[in-house]
Amino acid sequence: MGGTEFVGRAVTEAALAKGWQVTVFHRGRHEAPRGAAVLHGDRTAPEGLAALRTGEWDAVVDTWSWAPSAVRDTARLLSGRVERYAYVSSGSVYEFPKAPGLGEEAPVVAGAPDAGDVPYAEAKRGGELAALESFGAEGALFARAGLILGPYENVGRLPWWLSRIARGGPVLAPGPAGLPLQYIDVRDLADWILHAVETGLSGPYNLVCRSGHATMGSLLEACVAATGAAAELRWTAPEDVLAAGIEPWTELPVWVPPEGPEYAGYHDTLHRTGVEKAHAAGLRCRPVAETVADTWEWLRSLGGQAPQRPDRPQKGVPPEKEAKALGTAGH
C-alpha cells in the first residue's frame, strides 16, 4: 500500500530484488519502482479502493500513518484474499514515558480502528487494531519501527545533517558525543518485514538497532566522512544547547537530551527500547557509516535536495540560531 516513497519504496525494491511479484497501490503522484505492477486509488476518497476489489496476494505491507479507518477499510476489503497483513506501526504506540529497556510488553496508548483524524500515536495504534480486527492474531504483523533513516528519507532528519555538514565550517554538535542512539536503516526494516511475512511471523515487534549501535558522535562523524567536508564538529553540552533556545529532535534532528526536567523520559523512550524479540527473529542492522554514506550518495543524485513530506515540519536549526549558540554570529 503506497510503495513509491521511503519505507514503501524500500519494501517494494527489496521484494523485487528477491524475485517476488509486487503490486503497488498508490495515488500515482510518484513513479513506482520498475518491475512492479501498479494499481491506482486514493484511500481517502469515496470508492478509492475500487482497484483492490479483485485479486489475491500472499501478503500486504501497509505504511499508512493517518486515520485508522483507512486501514480498517483496506483490511476488511482484502480479508479472505490475503494471507498476512503487515502494518508498519511505530514505537510511538507505547505510553509515554516508557521505562528504559522495555520491549513489546510495555503499555500502549488507547486506539480505535474506526477513528478518523487523531494524534499520531493513537493513529498508529488504531491502525494496528484495524489490521487485527480483520486478520486476527495469527495474520496481523505490527512492525513497530523507531527512528527510520536511510536513502529515500522524506522526513528530513539525516538529509538535513548531511546538507549542513557538507556546507562546512563550525557545526553545532549536540552532546554528549557518546550519547547512544536507536534507529533503523529503512532497507534493514524492509528486509526484516519481508522475512517476517515469508516465515509467518505475527504480532508486535520493536524494530530498531540495539541502543548504542550508533552514538551522536559516530553518526555525525560519519556525515563528515561521507561528505568529505571541511566541517568542525563543536560538541556542546545539552544544557547549553537548550539555553540557546534550540529545540531537540526538530531543530537538531535525531538528538534529544539525556536528562533534564523539560525533556525527562524522551531519550529513554526514543533510544533505549527493548529489541531482543526482533533481533532473535532475524533483524540485522548495518553499520551507521553505511547508512550515512548511502544516504549521501542518494542525496547527491537528487542534486542535494531531498523530498519532503508535506505533512511533516521542516527539520534543522536556522543558521542564525546556530551561529549565536556557537558564538560565531557576525564572523
Rank of each mutant, 00 (worst) to 15 (best):
A121K: 06
G203V: 03
G2W: 00
G265S: 09
V197E: 01
P170A: 15
R210L: 12
G116H: 06
P204G: 04
D185L: 08
N154W: 02
L102S: 10
V71M: 10
Q314C: 13
Q308S: 11
P100G: 09
E239R: 13
A17D: 09
D188N: 14
R272V: 14
R84V: 07
A264S: 15
T23C: 08
W298F: 11
G327C: 06
R34M: 11
L141E: 00
E122M: 11
S92G: 04
A115M: 09
P310W: 04
A121V: 09
R187A: 06
G19E: 12
T44S: 08
E262N: 13
S218M: 05
S69T: 07
R76N: 13
S65G: 15
E322R: 04
I165A: 03
V317I: 08
Q305F: 12
R81N: 15
I246V: 12
K277L: 08
G41W: 14
F25I: 07
G111R: 03
L299R: 02
L132R: 10
E5C: 13
Q21M: 12
L172Y: 09
G245I: 05
P248E: 08
A112H: 09
Q314N: 14
V256F: 07
G217D: 07
V224P: 00
A130I: 02
D58C: 11
L181A: 03
V197R: 00
D188I: 06
K124R: 09
P68C: 05
R309T: 13
G146F: 01
P204A: 11
L326Y: 06
Y183N: 03
R312L: 12
R144W: 01
A130T: 00
D188M: 07
T273K: 05
A306C: 07
W66D: 09
G330L: 15
D42F: 13
L162T: 03
H40D: 14
R84D: 07
L194H: 01
P170Q: 15
Y183F: 07
H195A: 07
G260F: 02
G28S: 09
V82Y: 00
P151W: 01
E95H: 10
S89N: 09
H40I: 13
E153D: 07
D268G: 10
E232A: 12
R144I: 05
V11I: 10
G303S: 12
Q314L: 12
E239S: 10
G316V: 05
L132I: 06
E320S: 10
S89C: 07
G127H: 02
V275E: 01
E276R: 11
R234A: 11
R167A: 15
G212S: 11
L252D: 00
E320C: 13
P33C: 09
N206E: 14
P310I: 08
G282T: 05
P159D: 03
W296H: 02
A222D: 06
K124T: 03
R34V: 11
E320F: 15
P97E: 14
E56T: 08
D42H: 13
T54W: 12
T44A: 11
G316H: 05
C285M: 12
W249E: 13
G274A: 07
G265Q: 06
A225M: 14
L52M: 06
Q21W: 11
